[in-house]
Amino acid sequence: MPLTMMTRGIEAIVKGCRAKDKTKKFLEGLGLVPGTKIAVVAEMKGDLIISVKGSRLAINKGIAQKLDVEAA
């Protein structure tokens, strides 16, 4: 399911990313690869702050929709 559907505070595991190559690669550099455990820290109208490998990333709704996750 897309990250947008994830409940806040619950951990999830990245399954894949449907963003454009360039964005996808950038996200990989930030730690968002399949198998990575993430959690939603805060949410603002669909835009998210997520916790990835100890750092915090702000991503907009558009990206969140393209990240597929499953419950951990």
Binding site: T23, L27, I49, L57
Partner: peptide, 11 residues
Amino acid sequence: EAAPFVMELPP
């Protein structure tokens, strides 16, 4: 569309 927003938030 403008580039998607991805930004690290430092503590």
